[in-house]
């Protein structure tokens, strides 16, 4: 049992009488995964875990699975565990009034990066039989049936974490653990976006077509996204208006991802959930990261930082010229 998990359990035990439930993580079906967990009773608290496998962004349950706007009759709050990136999604949900700040008790967990199960499986000799995964300092120790492998943590953590600019929660009621130094400066160029932009225009089209050709339109990216809040009204599935047909061709696949990206323009907080859940490994978040870079350059705005701010494409300024 690591210190972070212990500190989290101790803290939740202390305040649980004031909370309706706590959104957290528990160990999953194998050592490579945790799963989202609703702590509803005192005895559930000992199942909570918080480590480098706590990759799910729990704020999506606030917007999609429960009412986090109206106060409870008994005044109790909903506790939610957030990493740095998750806290930005929470701020964006507060901005758009899907969550009310008074309704949630935010447990902040500074994060050094979450592991990418796909990358770990590629690194170890016997990926089907992983017995345990532990981070020891800057090393990751993976035990399989064929012995123990050790490698640098940076080789196993998710792409979004390697370019993380907000490892510490931007809003929180309590912080569990010490703040972490960000890997990139706030105004730093996004290295993955730069890698795509280094290609010629024709190559970029081929690159995206090659990536998006794998898309099976399972909608996992949409469902995992905390800010894809249209649910039954999502235009991917409505027949009226009919934006997407059921034909299986490049036009439809491309259009699907353009809809997802453009509906998140100025809202996406780069939590990387869309990319993590993609069953065919499309770098879905990479599309949105470019739009964020454009908006940062054009309007000097970053989503999910200031709960009072209005997302830039939902407002305007008559003064701006030249655009």
């Amino acid at each position: 049992m690591d210190d972070k998990t212990n500190a989290l359990r101790e803290h939740v035990k202390g305040i649980f009488s004031n909370l309706e439930l706590v959104l957290g993580w528990e160990p999953g079906y194998d050592p490579l995964h945790t799963r989202p967990f609703y702590v509803r009773t005192e005895s559930d608290i000992d199942r909570l875990t918080a480590n480098c496998l706590s990759f799910q962004n729990l704020t999506r349950y606030l917007a999609k699975s429960m009412n986090a706007v109206d106060p409870a009759a008994d005044g109790r709050k909903i506790g939610v565990c957030v990493k740095g990136c998750d806290s930005r999604s929470l701020v964006a949900l507060i901005q758009e009034k899907f969550v009310s700040r008074d309704r949630v008790y935010v447990i902040g967990l500074p994060c050094r990066g979450t592991l990418d199960a796909r990358r770990i499986r590629a690194l170890v000799p016997d990926p089907a039989r992983i017995r345990s995964v532990n981070a020891e300092g800057d090393e990751l120790v993976v035990e399989t049936d064929r012995g123990i492998s050790r490698f640098a943590l940076d080789r196993a953590i998710a792409r979004k974490c390697l370019q993380c600019r907000y490892p510490n929660p931007v809003i929180h009621d309590v912080l569990i653990g010490d703040p972490v130094t960000p890997r990139l400066k706030i105004d730093a160029e996004n290295p993955s976006v730069a890698a795509v932009e280094a290609l010629s225009l024709e190559d970029r089209l081929l690159f995206w077509e090659n990536q998006l050709d794998r898309c099976i339109r399972c909608f996992a990216c949409r469902n995992a996204c905390p800010l894809c809040v249209c649910q039954n009204h999502c235009i991917m599935e409505t027949r009226m208006p009919k934006w997407i047909t059921q034909y299986r061709n490049m036009n439809e696949k491309f259009m699907f991802h353009m809809i997802h990206a453009l509906h998140l323009a100025g809202r996406c907080t780069e939590c990387g959930e869309c990319e993590r859940v993609c069953p065919v490994g499309i770098p879905v978040a990479l599309i949105k990261e470019k739009i964020n870079a454009i908006i940062y350059e054009m309007l000097d705005y970053e989503s999910g930082i200031d709960p009072e701010a209005v997302p830039p494409l939902l407002t305007f300024s008559p003064k701006e010229t030249g655009i």
Binding site: L206, F207, E209, L262, A265, L313, P318
Partner: peptide, 20 residues
Amino acid sequence: FYARRRMEVLKRFLPYMGFQ
């Protein structure tokens, strides 16, 4: 005013996806 922002974002975004 709304349209201006949206279209400028789109105009800068299109080449990233490989559109002219």
